[in-house]
Structure formats: C-alpha cells, structure tokens
C-alpha cells in the first residue's frame, strides 16, 4: 500500500456528502433524540423526568410487547416469502409475450397506488361475514364449511392482514422483478437452449443467479417494510385486535406514544425493535450480497 504524499481524492466523498448531510440531520439526529428520550419518563408535554433504564426494563417485562414482536416476526417472514414468490412468478410470466401484456402489468400494479383508507374499508368489507365477497363466494360454490372468522378469529386475523399486505405490494415487487428479468441478456438463454437446457433448468441456472441483486433488493424491502412500516395496513384493518392477535410492534409502539402518552417507553421499545431489525437486516445483507463483484 502506498500512502506517501498522495493527495486524498475528494471526489467520492463529495458525491456522498449531500446524502450524508441530509441523512444525518433528518434521520440520525431524531434517532438519537429518541434514544435520549428513552431514558426519561415523558408524557409528551410536561417536563421529562430522568429514570435511567426503567423504560427498558418495563418494556422487557411487558408481555404484550413481546407478543407484538412475535407477531411482527411471523408477519415479516410470511409477507417476505409470499410477496417474493408470487411477484417472481408473475414477473416470470409477464416477461414473455402474453396477450394484453401492458394491461396486466399496469393492472396488477394498481393496488400500490390505493390509499390505506380505501384499503381499510374495502378489505374489511371483503372479509365481512354478512355481505363480504369471500363468504358469498364460498357460499356460492357450496363450501360453507370453509367460512372462517377472517378478521374476528384471533387465530386467523393476522394471516388475513398478511394477505392484504401481500395484495397491496405485489405489483410493486413484480415490477422490480420484471425490470431485473428484462435486463438479463438474451444470449444466455440462447446458449442454454442450444445446450438443450429446458425452461426449468434455465430458471434455476440463469434467471435466478442473474437476478441476485434484484432478489436482495426485494427481500430486504419486504422484510424491513414489515418491521418498520406496516403500521398503516394493520391499523386500518384491525387496529391490533381482536384480543391483540394482530398487534405488531409498530401499532403497539404508536399506542404507547400517542394513546397512552408514554413517549419514553415508546422510544425504548423502538430502540429494542431497531436492535432486532439491525441484527436481522445485516445478517441478511451479508448472506445475500456477498457476491456482487464489488467489495462492500
């Protein structure tokens, strides 16, 4: 390694600087503010009172918090797997010539554009026991015994919400996969066909390896989305009920912050959640992005 008197190349740093500045000011500073407040008892209004680690010990001893963490993990894993498998399959179909290709590509994307208010009304009515579409359909095909308390049975409600989340974001992930698949050079497939590899073999040996970085993006987005931004969808669908069966970390943290006026505990729980996501996020990143040719 030559250190010597070589001038430091500022260009890469300058390129990173705007992002670092913005990010530090509006994400990291508030984050440290939250971390700092997690050592205080604070209702959001009156003078904060320093209580050391009490918010953390209260959170750790809060069984509802751990229940919500458990739901968050189930939710995150289900959503990530289902979204990615379905989106991949849809993209795999839509990347080739099918009738009404553009129409399908646009149509399946539409739920992404819908507001959560509409989703809340729509899906709770789709699941409705008296006039809901699902139960009407099951009655129509004579499968009344399949009718369940979609949103009212504590054993099922979480899965019903997962379905809505998958439905909402499927189109987005499909588009990302489509973009990735479009970018794979046709030459690979031609060469494979000449070698006599069939569709399935091509999928395993060409499409999936070539899509590695797209898969990383998609998995990370759905995983962290389920940890850090599933508040809206759970809130409009069930608000955490019935009997806390759909309570996820974010709904519980927001309840603590704004309904129970316990900002300190909410911040402590956010920090615990962050620690979990941090560990999982980095493990996932390390496993999945080892081999993209650039050292990071």
């Amino acid at each position: 390694m030559r250190i010597g008197k070589r001038k430091i190349d500022t260009f890469p740093y300058l390129m990173c600087l705007p992002a670092i500045i913005l990010f530090t000011i509006f994400i990291i500073l508030p984050f440290f503010d939250g971390l700092y407040m997690s050592f205080f008892k604070w209702d959001g209004f009156s003078e904060p009172e320093f209580i050391g680690l009490r918010n953390y010990s209260n959170s750790i001893h809060d069984s509802l918090f751990w229940l919500s963490m458990k739901h968050t993990f189930i939710y995150a894993i289900l959503v990530t797997v289902i979204k990615n498998v379905l989106a991949f399959l849809l993209a795999y179909i839509l990347v080739r010539k099918v009738p009404f290709q553009t129409l399908f590509r646009t149509g399946i994307y539409l739920p992404v554009t819908l507001s959560y208010v509409v989703i809340g009304v729509l899906w709770s009515w789709v699941y409705n026991p008296t006039f809901g579409l699902i139960n009407s359909f099951l009655t129509m095909i004579g499968k009344e015994e399949w009718i369940l308390g979609w949103l009212s049975d504590p054993d099922i409600a979480l899965y019903s919400v997962v379905v809505v989340d998958v439905w909402k974001w499927l189109g987005y992930h499909m588009v990302l996969y489509l973009a990735g698949m479009q970018a794979i050079s046709k030459d690979y497939y031609e060469a494979a066909s000449i070698d006599g590899a069939n569709g399935f073999k091509q999928l395993i040996h060409i499409t999936i390896p070539q899509l590695n970085s797209t898969i990383v993006v998609n998995v990370l987005m759905s995983l962290t989305g389920a940890f850090a931004s599933n508040y809206d969808i759970v809130n409009v669908m069930t608000g955490g009920g019935p009997a806390n069966s759909t309570e996820v970390s974010l709904t519980y943290i927001v309840s603590n912050a704004f309904r129970y006026s316990n900002m300190g505990k909410a911040n402590a729980m956010s920090m615990i959640l962050f620690a979990f996501v941090f560990v999982f996020g980095f493990i996932q990143l390390r496993i999945m992005s080892r081999e993209d040719g650039y050292d990071v």
Partner: peptide, 20 residues
C-alpha cells in the same frame, strides 16, 4: 351472533339499513 365480531361501525350500519 358471530357476525358481530367482525363487523365495524360502518358495516353494522350497512347491515341495519339493508334490513339484515
């Protein structure tokens, strides 16, 4: 009945005005 468990305010009103 079990219907009440999954019926929010809007759905309850809808059921009522539909005569269900």
């Amino acid at each position: 009945t079990s219907e009440s468990f999954a019926t929010d305010e809007d759905a309850m009103l809808a059921n009522f005005v539909q005569g269900r």
